[in-house]
Computed example of a mutant assay.
Amino acid sequence: MSAGTVFGVGLGPGDPDLMSVRADRLLRNARHVAFFRKAGRTGQARKIVNGMIPDGAVEFAMEYPVTTEIPVTDPRYNQALSAFYIDCTAHLKTLTARGEDVVVLCEGDPFFYGSFMHLYERLRGDTRVEIVPAITGMSGAWTATGDPITWGDDVLTVLMGTLPLDVLTARMTGTDALVVMKIGRNFDKVKQALQTTGLYDRAWLVEYAQMPQQTVTRLSEAGDRVTPYFSIILVHGRGRRP
């Protein structure tokens, strides 16, 4: 095992006040801080912790070689990302081999649809890795609506907007409560699936949950605008209650 430790630190949905005490403590004492971002951007994770990283800490920005430029079904997509994660892992291993600890910033929870998981799979086994769990983005989103997402025996389904239309429709059919993530350019497709399954009029659109620019809108009133990546569509359950 390496002498140093990589900490996958969940930052929660976007508000620094919703970070855990442990996440805050690790970050404020960090000597090395790594985070993902798109080339040319600050990175959402880095924005969340602005002002919290100690002076003198070394920052390592892991810049994605590709995001939405080519389809995820294109073999080049996985090839580019695989090489990227290998390079990032090598850098982290170099630091931990010298006895350094590294805090890797993770939006939401590190083990819930996050990029850190791809590093974790390459690190585990010969590198010390500790996970600091956090509030998920979807929890922050349904809290923003002011209504519980599930009641009693409700079944909650979580879907990615990147799925094909027929898969989205099939998965939505029969569920009690619903979360759809990764909306972005899949907005029209997700709306079509919701209309087909009769869930459209119950759906809410939450953009930038728990961030300063948060908006909460009934999907039927949202218009046809293209939503940002940080958008979640919700359908609340109506299950058993006393």
Rank of each mutant, 00 (worst) to 15 (best):
Y85I: 07
E121C: 06
D188A: 15
M52R: 14
D188W: 01
V6G: 04
M160R: 09
T68H: 10
L92H: 06
V158G: 04
F187M: 15
K182G: 01
P242L: 14
R128S: 14
Q213W: 05
L81K: 10
L105M: 00
L123A: 07
C106E: 02
R46Q: 06
T145L: 01
D17M: 11
G51Q: 01
A193S: 13
A57M: 03
V102E: 02
F84N: 15
V6M: 00
F116G: 14
A39S: 14
L178S: 02
R124H: 11
P164E: 12
N186R: 09
E59L: 12
A141S: 06
A97K: 13
A203W: 09
T73R: 02
F7R: 09
R225G: 15
L234V: 01
D87Q: 15
I232G: 03
P148D: 06
V49E: 05
A203Y: 10
A30I: 12
K191V: 15
L205A: 11
T143G: 07
S20V: 03
S82A: 13
R76C: 06
L81G: 10
V190N: 13
A45C: 05
T197M: 10
M172E: 06
T197I: 05
V206N: 11
M62V: 07
D109T: 02
V180W: 04
V72S: 13
T217I: 09
R22P: 01
H32L: 10
R22K: 13
G152Y: 11
A203H: 08
E221M: 08
A3H: 00
D15Q: 08
T157M: 09
D126I: 00
A209T: 04
